[in-house]
Design a protein around this nucleic acid. Structure first.
Lengths: 109, 109
DNA sequence: TTCCGCTACTTAGCGCTACTATGTACTAGT
DNA sequence: ACTAGTACATAGTAGCGCTAAGTAGCGGAA
């Protein structure tokens, strides 16, 4: 999607993944395909895995390894309490930014 | 506003400044105070000036130096044709991201 | 007249995140 | 044996916002 999108995803991609995970555990490869299905067609695989490592180290998700019939074992990520809290804050931050931008778009500067 | 906002501003701050500049030339210090007035209270001064250098080098704005009664000369930035084009693309990119996120927030994952 | 505060701009170095590129490893189908 | 699809990992790069510190001009208070 170009450089603009790349920069804009910084900070929001984590929130997007956390949101995808709410009430619905998923593994890395699955998350990548989910993102692609939602229109984020150019998200690099490596980006997702790196992000998952990060949110695991921050303690926002619980991880469980499960065997796969089709390849190497999957790492299934589940949003935990801390992750939900982080997601909450993400929505607040995004809400604020979104409001400001919507106002600007309507010419309210 | 914390680390989340810092990351989320990456990519969007440029668009915000370009939007502030539409039809209304402004100088750096003025832009900083404008941003603060709009709720971006923790935007660092250095960030704004660095951004202005960047958009000038990208050719998105025209610059004019004007004397000030209260201090060093001001550098007044005016959005040019290329800047308007960039702003257009910014709104498209942001629109896409915004739609996706709004859908996610409503539980549409 | 010295000092403080506000105006106004600049810049070196840091941390974080997404991307590129490449590699490993397992399974099934041809 | 080879390929394609599944599944994860990681070293190096670029870009952006922040920190911190500095330069410079002006006015008013001490």
């Amino acid at each position: 999607m170009g450089k603009q999108m790349t920069e804009m995803l910084k900070g929001t991609l984590e929130g997007i993944v956390l949101a995808l995970l709410t009430g619905k555990p998923a593994y890395g490869y699955e998350i990548t395909t989910l993102l692609r299905a939602q229109g984020f067609t150019e998200i690099a695989e490596g980006t997702v895995y790196a992000l998952l490592v990060r949110i695991e180290q921050k303690g926002l998700v619980d991880v469980e390894k499960r065997p796969s019939e089709k390849g190497p074992p999957r790492k299934v990520y589940t949003l935990n309490a801390q992750g939900e809290k982080e997601l909450d804050e993400f929505w607040k931050t995004w809400g604020f930014l979104s409001e400001r931008l919507e106002q600007l778009r309507k010419g309210g500067n």
